[in-house]
Amino acid sequence: MESDYKRWTYFPGNVYKTPETKKRKFWDKLVLGTRIYFVLRYIRAINVNARKALAGVYDREAWAESSIDILNLTEDCGARYNISGLDNLHELEGPAVFVSNHMSTLETMVYPGIIAPEMPVTFVVKESLMTAPLFGPVMRSREPITVKRENVREDLMAVMSQGQEKLKEGTSIIIFPQSTRTVNFNPKEFNSMGIKLAQKAKVKVVPMAIKSDFWGNGKLIKEFGKLNRKKTVFIEIGKPFAVSGNGKEDHERVTAWISERLEQWNKIRS
């Protein structure tokens, strides 16, 4: 935990929307709707961050700043953001478990820029990401909780054990309870791991919903999917709440809330 860290935020209000004056970069337009400009800048950014991580200087502030850099990159390539519920984050006292659906690489890149300025935070990630080229050093530097996604019981034990320690230290946890990134949200595939962790650690749950199909998943490499510049990126942070009883109703409450947001956003023509 970085106790000497000074709190700040890139999003001081309750809502952030990409300014109407924000225009696509000339170089992105020049490549005729392809993602060449985006991919080159993205790879460069990850390479810079990996070098910082290997040098031991990729701290929480650097993580948040690099996250905002990626957000700015997506805006440079035509993304329009609509982020709401930020006051629920600003007013949060103490560590929490953030439970979100997982649609694309975008949330992994952008969530730190939203949450890390407010509090120490890390992810629950697949173990293989720790050794991935370029991104591995970055992920290792943030000391995430790792799971293998081969045995549900073992993963639950790892999250419960490591998660409680992190939360006790004051570090919040971001959990994507789905087994993989998917555009279509299926509540039946959304496990209750986050609810159980929050209940055991006696901290609040913060539901988060995201529609990030602007950045598609690639067939060979998921991080390099197509960009759909007609899609708006929607993010909403829900009200924090304490888990009650066995947590079953709270889990259903979170999945219903996410489903409602996605249904509402899908009706909005980007």
Rank of each mutant, 00 (worst) to 15 (best):
N72W: 13
D59H: 12
P120G: 01
E65Y: 13
V110A: 14
R80C: 03
T105K: 00
L73C: 05
G56T: 03
V57Q: 09
Y111M: 12
T105M: 13
L89R: 00
A55D: 15
T122W: 06
E107K: 01
M103S: 10
I114Y: 10
M119I: 13
E118V: 08
G94I: 09
A64N: 11
G85T: 04
F98S: 04
E91N: 15
V125A: 14
L92V: 03
H102F: 01
V125E: 02
Y81F: 15
R80Q: 10
R80M: 05
P95K: 06
E75L: 04
G85P: 01
G85D: 09
V110M: 07
A79L: 09
S66I: 00
I115L: 12
P120C: 04
A62G: 10
E65T: 13
C77V: 12
V57P: 12
N88C: 06
A79Q: 04
Y58W: 12
G78V: 06
A96H: 02
N82H: 13
S67Y: 12
I83V: 15
P117R: 00
K126I: 00
L89C: 11
R60Q: 13
A116D: 11
E93T: 12
P112Y: 08
F98C: 07
E61I: 06
L92Q: 14
E61S: 12
P117T: 00
P117Q: 01
T105Q: 09
H102G: 08
E91R: 15
N88Y: 07
N101E: 10
H102M: 06
S100A: 09
N88F: 05
S67I: 08
L106F: 14
P112M: 07
S100K: 00
I68F: 13
V97R: 00
S100D: 08
H102K: 05
A79Y: 05
L106E: 08
K126F: 06
M109G: 04
V57I: 15
L106I: 10
E75H: 07
Y58R: 04
Y81R: 01
T122H: 07
A116T: 13
N82S: 13
G78H: 05
N72I: 06
N82F: 12
A79K: 03
R60F: 08
T122R: 04
E107Q: 04
T108M: 08
P112L: 07
V110K: 00
I68D: 01
S100C: 03
L92N: 05
S67N: 08
L73D: 02
L86C: 09
A64Y: 05
H102I: 02
S100Q: 05
V121D: 04
I83K: 01
N101L: 10
G78E: 02
R80V: 13
V125C: 11
I68S: 01
E93S: 14
D87W: 08
G113H: 02
E65G: 06
N72G: 02
E118W: 10
S100P: 04
G78T: 01
F98N: 03
V99E: 12
L106M: 11
K126C: 02
G94F: 08
D69H: 14
M109A: 15
D87H: 12
P95N: 07
H90N: 10
H102D: 11
I70Q: 07
D87P: 02
V110D: 03
D59V: 05
R60P: 11
L92G: 01
V97S: 03
L86S: 09
A79N: 04
E118A: 11
L73K: 10
F123Y: 15
F123H: 05
H102Q: 08
N88E: 11
L92H: 08
V110N: 04
L89H: 01
N101Y: 08
T74V: 15
A62C: 09
